[in-house]
Design a binder for these strands. Sequence first.
DNA 1: GTCTATATCGCGATAGAC
DNA 2: GTCTATCGCGATATAGAC
Lengths: 209, 209
Amino acid sequence: MDRAVDKIPRPRDVLEARILQHAVEAFAETGYAGSALANIAERAGLSKQNLLYYFPTKQILYQRVLDQVLDHWLERMQVLADATQDPVQLLRNYIHAKLRFSREHPQASRVYAMEVISGAPIYGNSIRDKVVPLLQKDIAVFESWIAQGKIAPINTTHLMFAIWAMTQSYADFSTQMSLVLGHAPLNEQDFVEAEKLIVEIVVARMMAH
Amino acid sequence: MDRAVDKIPRPRDVLEARILQHAVEAFAETGYAGSALANIAERAGLSKQNLLYYFPTKQILYQRVLDQVLDHWLERMQVLADATQDPVQLLRNYIHAKLRFSREHPQASRVYAMEVISGAPIYGNSIRDKVVPLLQKDIAVFESWIAQGKIAPINTTHLMFAIWAMTQSYADFSTQMSLVLGHAPLNEQDFVEAEKLIVEIVVARMMAH
DNA sequence: GTCTATATCGCGATAGAC
DNA sequence: GTCTATCGCGATATAGAC
């Protein structure tokens, strides 16, 4: 019976969600050490002391932020699991999904990127346990396609790195891209062009013989 | 006459260089706000107060670090300027040079990446004045190749973004790559495989008709 | 759960002797 | 140029009233 009640969002849940949302923004803009709890609390509309009631330490808040980022991302990246479609279409869907995430949640991508660039001092264990197995699963899918002769042989691990890098960069390096393109922020057309190019160069190699 | 004397590295120059070197490492590991001057000074073997004699403020030190990173990088990236070679070989050289930089100076790449991801709050003007013109010049080279019918038509700007992202990621995301590959740090063979794949997928598209 | 008040600390930066 | 000493600030975190 308690379970039934738990399904209704209590004030605590919505408040925690609001704090987490503003924490993502802050960490993306100024990093872990550069973000002040007082500033995050102010954005979320409560006192710093009150924020510490919900998240006892800064590090716990940070880990919860990354948990949410990762859960959200992993949920959206299950595209390759659908084995009913052909490789090219699956890869299109995969690139599309990853680019959409970069467009719709750039701050989430940036917080994760900064953690990895810093050597993942806090979140390394979770990356090893949650992200790496998923990447390896996707790499295994590529391998099976090659074994079945559906695509040309290729180094699947580095292909995955390449796809990851190209899609991720439209969130992480959007500042630099905007300076090159002459407008900010990146718009829908930029992402359409990006997807077109990434799909093209990846598919061109996959179909090569 | 004074000039002749200046060519001999004075103690000040070598000390500043040593400080900058350790500052790059610190900023790459913990970011701007997360790095303490006392820690950088300790790495370099002098007192915090003494460090502040050479670099009056933390921000000045940080900008000098980025200046050095960029100068070094721009110097190495003049590959496309050589118009005597054919496009494919030039592009190979370009990718090779950028990957070498990621391998030999990963910390430099990471400091720059974190600054860009954060929205370039401190170094944005320098990026606009020094990096963007260079990228646009390289993009113009691609355009000329297309105009001359040497390579297949393609969105050159996003092709540049793609090459940048793929090569850059071998410095910035090496922590995650090491977890996937099962060994750290990345070794020479990893970079050979990376270069092979990046060249393949880019060239495959360039030669497509 | 939210508030006021405060403890405790590390940081960047400065002053001044030598 | 290097040293000792210290200022002033902002940070995380805690204590306790309501």
